[in-house]
Amino acid sequence: MINATLTEEEVGRLDRQIRVWGFEAQQRLGTATEVIKNIVLSGVGRLVIMDGDEVIEEDLGSGFFFRDEDVGKKRVDAAKDRIESLNPLVTVETITAFDGLEGPGFDATIRGVDLVCVTDWDRDGLIRINEACRRQGKPFYAGGTYGVLGYIFCDLLKHDYVAPHDRSVPKEAQKNIKLSATYPPLSDALTHRWSSLTKRQTKDLNPAVVFAILALWEHQKVLGQLPTGPDDVAELESMANAMISAADVKKQVLETIPSDLIQTLSETARTEFSPVCAIVGGMLAQDILKTLAARDPPIANFFTFDGNTGAGTVCRMSMP
């Protein structure tokens, strides 16, 4: 799609930048489906999709690449033709064999791409993939949804980009300036403390949703799975409250996690909802494209979405 008004040389330069490797696993694929659709429409040169799972009936609720008769097939096999038909100029490769996140094979796969995006994964897995990306010097994106909540995390290492120096001046008078941002890996970001934020700054970042998601990750780590219902409310709540306290969040803003949020989340953390996937998948793809184009500031570095209101905020975790 891109070459209509670009020279061969420019297209060549873009093509090197725009191979994206995405993969997803486990139950949910709504966010991945949205990201894949958006990335393919954008005309990215090549997309490698890695997924070892088979289509289940629940996938039909958010996975518009699948039909009733696809249930039981490998997801990537069922979706490949429909993905490719979105944009004949994009090459889509699929990988169904999954030999773990450790080892030289995995690093070799990352080496061949320009950017890695992981959706709906658990915290430890994200940390490991993030580390592998760091070893290979590749930008890393993660995103996912839990019912009506969603998040995006990115570690873009040292990212250089151009942006207008001042949006308040007329477009014609704007000059682009080069900027640079240094990102921490997820493992460091998770140690972030909120001590330095004012009450107002804290409130603006919708901390309840941030800690709800962090608590879900903790729950998944400690109990081996996301909450499954009312029985998990107490555990999830105490995890969230402990994390809020440890992060030194301004007590006047958020001392304990709202219990209605935790109750809803205990019921819905394992679900995904098409409109929420569209929003998080849209934000995620948009940011990936900004990063690849090295234009405009990307997310820095933890975006959370609250589907109860439609609010989306970005918390700088362990970033100045």
């Binding site: 799609m1 891109i2 209509a4 008004t5 670009l6 420019e10 330069r13 873009l14 930048q17 725009i18 429409l41 954008s42 005309g43 151009v162 682009n176 494209l289 900004k290 690849l292 184009a293 090295a294 234009r295 405009d296």
Partner: peptide, 15 residues
């Protein structure tokens, strides 16, 4: 340069 980048980002303008 910025137009090129923008085209990639939006995937729309140039084509």
């Amino acid at each position: 340069v910025s137009k090129t980048a923008n085209a990639a980002a939006s995937g729309s303008k140039a084509p």
